[in-house]
Amino acid sequence: MSVSVTKIASNKTFGGILSKYTFKADSLGGLDAKFNVFLPSASESSKFPILYYLAGLECTEDTAPWKGGFLRDAAQEGIALVFPDTSPRGAGAEGEDDSWDFGTGAGFYINATNPIYSKHYNMYDYVVKELPKALQSLDLPLDFTRESIFGHSMGGHGAISLYLPPWGQKAFTGYLTGGIDEGKAYDSTELIASAKGKNLNILIDYVRRPLRSVTRINSTKAGQLLPENFSAAARSAGFTESQVDVREQPGYDHSYYFISTFVPEHIKFHSKFLKA
């Protein structure tokens, strides 16, 4: 089935072009879905590897391009960036606008099975299946054989799918009929334990402060999602530090000041594998 995607904005930046698109996403119940794509400056023969960025709670597809400092480094590395939104918008589902950490702006990149949310809140299918099809329909110079993903906060939770109480409990008990047990399918600590023997390349930065921690690839609140548990599970599964590197960065907070500080290193990290 063809996808009809409309360009609604375009800006030149760092020699490349940042464009905003929209289309009606089946996985989101037919609602309009907006996303941004950054393409570096290129010759006619260039095709760029793709790096997807999943943003955090309360963010949109615009937050990272505006605040994160991503575009300069992606332009230098010759990498395309894709910025999806964080949830469906305007679903009208019960309670979706009652709190900042559930519903609108807080899709958690999972597929809801609770009937209240299952028509629209399927951000996993949207990011993994439908968004790539929308990108392919645009005939942009993108190399779909070279893709990677990273994120911040809830987006890190989406990229490495941590589920640990109490943050994961609220999302999983709300979106999933099977609650916490069903949520284990999205739990990166569970998943990495079962990934023994695979070739993994993961870089995580986090900050430990009272109730706050930030990571790239994954970002969590320190007292809630416990990145050290993920690290311990990785070591137990036999992964070395060069394969799964979890680094504390003292003194920073959960903001985009932290992101803009460390994003150059992370884009270079992904570039190393995307260009291999």
Rank of each mutant, 00 (worst) to 15 (best):
S2H: 13
S2L: 10
S4Q: 14
I8A: 07
G15M: 10
K20C: 13
K20W: 07
Y21V: 08
T22A: 06
S27C: 12
L31S: 14
F35S: 06
N36D: 12
P40C: 02
P40D: 00
F48R: 00
A55H: 06
C59E: 15
D62T: 09
P65S: 10
P65A: 10
R72T: 01
D73Q: 13
Q76E: 14
L81S: 02
F83K: 02
F83E: 01
P84K: 02
P88Q: 13
A91Q: 06
A93T: 15
E94K: 14
E94P: 02
E94Q: 12
E96V: 10
F102P: 00
T104F: 12
T104E: 14
G105F: 13
F108I: 09
Y109L: 11
I116L: 10
Y117G: 01
S118Y: 08
H120C: 03
H120M: 01
Y121S: 00
L131S: 03
K133R: 12
A134S: 07
A134N: 02
L140P: 06
P141C: 05
L142K: 04
E147P: 00
S161L: 11
P165C: 06
P166I: 11
G168I: 02
A171Y: 02
F172L: 09
G174Y: 11
G174K: 07
Y175Q: 05
L176E: 10
G178D: 14
G179V: 14
K184G: 07
T189H: 04
L191T: 07
S194W: 01
S194R: 12
R208P: 05
R208I: 05
P210Q: 05
R212V: 15
R212A: 10
S219W: 11
A222V: 05
G223K: 02
Q224R: 01
E228D: 12
F230P: 01
F230Y: 15
F230D: 04
A232Y: 10
A233Q: 07
A234I: 07
S236C: 05
S236I: 10
G238A: 06
S242T: 14
Q249W: 08
Q249P: 00
D253L: 12
S255W: 09
F258A: 03
V263Q: 09
V263R: 00
H266P: 03
K268A: 08
K268T: 02
K272V: 00
L274P: 01
